[in-house]
Design a protein around this nucleic acid. Structure first.
Lengths: 158, 158
DNA sequence: TATAAACTGTTTACTAGATTAACAATATGG
DNA sequence: CCATATTGTTAATCTAGTAAACAGTTTATA
């Protein structure tokens, strides 16, 4: 707090301490934060753990059994074509089944297997402890505030 | 607030209103919010406007002229190999120059052109108004709080 | 001073995540 | 019945990013 020279004047010093414009943009900070959390997620879940999007898909299938692929894509905010590979992976690992629905032969309802429910419970615990560990410098109030502010951003989707 | 049935009990209703696990994870909400902001950024800057990462790079070059590519990559948190295409694009558009530095023939200092400084000022204004418009349901306090919480996440990088 | 180690910008190959467009099969609404 | 819409799927494409190698150059060390 000694110096009052807080301008963004250009110098040739190798140590530049002024806040660059970038830090003032929410988008930039959102991305940097997201990259950090996402990288730690992968580290925490390990080599052949779930990728974030696969974890998310499994989570919804476990919580909403019989969800259709289209419905799941809508919930995740991705195209249904992009979901095929994710469901293929989960089915290939024996964590869910594609089942046909009497009355509509187009849809394939997704049903978690017992192994899928178990794998999800384990993964959820791992994700929870990853976030708790990584974000240990935020207290519960701060986390709740962050969530509500992120929810506001999500609510402003065009 | 009429019903107290707030369990996550499984039903066969087509309208499921309970909060799924996913919404409780900071990583998930961070990603969803980031996707929304990033998509609006691109929409706002238009067909041949800057991609977010190109905008970020130009911002730093304008604010820190003579930054090296390695230095810029470090600031952006990406590999220097990934920066080559970004700098190629900016140089190709005539917005910066690669200049050689007397005393170290390895490095190429990046210097914004006048056109680059102008383009950045315009883009920065466009980005500011995009964020102001998109995030108009957050007041200044909320935005400041969000920034400080995101900064805390950034500070917890491993 | 000789040599090993490190750093810079770059290319190439690869991966992940995602989108768009088309398609056949099926369902729904005038 | 017929036009329209929906579902799951494939194929082609795009973007953003990494990792590994490389030649040229600089720095550190023995």
């Amino acid at each position: 707090m000694a110096s009052l020279r807080k301008t963004n004047r250009q110098t040739e010093d190798e140590t530049l301490v002024e806040t660059p414009d970038l830090e003032e943009f929410i988008g930039y900070n959102l991305k940097r934060a997201y990259v950090i959390v996402q990288a730690d997620f992968r580290r925490a879940l390990g080599e052949d753990g779930f990728a974030p999007r696969v974890f998310s898909a499994l989570s919804l299938v476990v919580q909403y059994p019989n969800v259709t692929q289209s419905g799941l894509a809508r919930m995740l905010g991705i195209e249904r074509s992009g979901l095929v590979a994710i469901v293929d992976e989960l089915e290939g690992r024996g964590l869910l089944k594609r089942t046909n629905v009497p009355g509509d032969r187009r849809v394939q309802a997704l049903v978690p297997t017992n192994a899928g429910a178990k794998a999800y419970a384990d993964a959820r615990a791992a994700v929870r402890s990853h976030e708790e560990r990584l974000l240990s410098n935020l207290n519960d109030d701060e986390k709740a505030t962050l969530m509500s502010l992120l929810a506001k951003i999500r609510a402003s989707e065009v």
